[in-house]
Simulated assay, not measured.
Amino acid sequence: MFTGIIESLGTIAALETSGTNKIFWVSSPISHELKIDQSVAHNGVCLTVDALKDGQHRVTAIAETLEKTNLGELQPGDLLNLERCMVMNGRIDGHIVQGHVDGTGTCTGVKDLDGSWEYRFSIDPQFAPLIIEKGSICINGTSLTLFNVTTDSFSVAIIPYTYEHTNINQLVPGSKVNLEFDMIGKYVNRLRSLSTGT
């Protein structure tokens, strides 16, 4: 479990293909603190550390993960948002995040508001029941608040700290992002669909 509060940025140092899997070597300020078998969110995707060396850690993304996320499009040198799993004895500054990406969205616009930034994203309309005005969403692993919600799009506002300490500043119109919708909303939607048979 995660909170969507990004702990560090990492850089893809090397990328390998093994069958249908992709193997990422990631260099980051927290890599030397990690241990093998630890869960770490990479752009919001929960992956298991399977090797360590020289200030880098290695993770493997399988075909299922590559199909549902933007990890398959990443290249050496690209930045990743990183978060270690939450400690259950403190405050949750974001919201409860599983690291299980539901799908991807596309950045459709960026506005510089002279002190903050507004990003607009489009989504598959099938996800419309999972987004609400002022609700929570995780974009590339970052916990954010939605507004201007429609059936196939939404906006988020970005403060300077988030802009400087995550990879959202790399997004441009057309960029694909990983989305994880609010877990409580997903359960409520599932119960509603079972009760109505839709």
Rank of each mutant, 00 (worst) to 15 (best):
T198Q: 15
I62G: 03
V110G: 08
V188S: 12
T11S: 07
M1C: 03
V45Y: 02
T3V: 00
V172W: 08
K134M: 15
G115Y: 10
L74H: 13
D182K: 05
M1H: 08
H32R: 13
M1A: 12
L171N: 09
G90Q: 09
E67F: 05
L52C: 09
A51F: 10
K134G: 14
H57Y: 15
G141F: 02
L82D: 08
T142A: 15
V97W: 14
K186A: 09
T11C: 02
S31V: 02
S143W: 07
T17Y: 04
V177A: 05
K35Q: 06
T60L: 03
I184Y: 14
E180C: 05
D37M: 05
L74V: 02
G103V: 01
N89I: 00
F127G: 04
T3H: 04
T48H: 01
C107H: 10
E73P: 03
V156Q: 06
T198E: 15
Y163K: 06
D50G: 06
G19P: 08
I36T: 15
I36F: 08
K186T: 04
T104I: 12
L66R: 04
Q170C: 05
S122V: 07
I159Q: 09
Q98E: 14
L179P: 04
G77L: 05
Q38K: 10
G105F: 12
L113A: 15
T162W: 09
E73N: 15
I6C: 01
A157H: 06
W25S: 01
A14G: 07
L144V: 02
P76I: 01
T198F: 04
G77T: 03
S39L: 03
D102P: 13
S27H: 07
S39M: 00
T142W: 08
G105M: 06
N148Q: 11
S136G: 02
Q170V: 03
I139Q: 11
I139N: 11
T142N: 10
F121A: 02
G94L: 09
G77S: 06
I62K: 13
G135E: 14
G197W: 06
G197L: 05
L113H: 13
G105L: 12
Q170G: 05
E16K: 11
D112M: 12
I12E: 00
V188M: 13
G4S: 12
F154V: 05
I36Q: 11
L82W: 11
S28G: 03
K176L: 08
A63L: 12
L34Y: 12
L66F: 03
L9V: 00
V26Q: 01
T162H: 05
W117E: 04
E16I: 00
S116T: 04
Q75L: 13
D114K: 14
E180H: 10
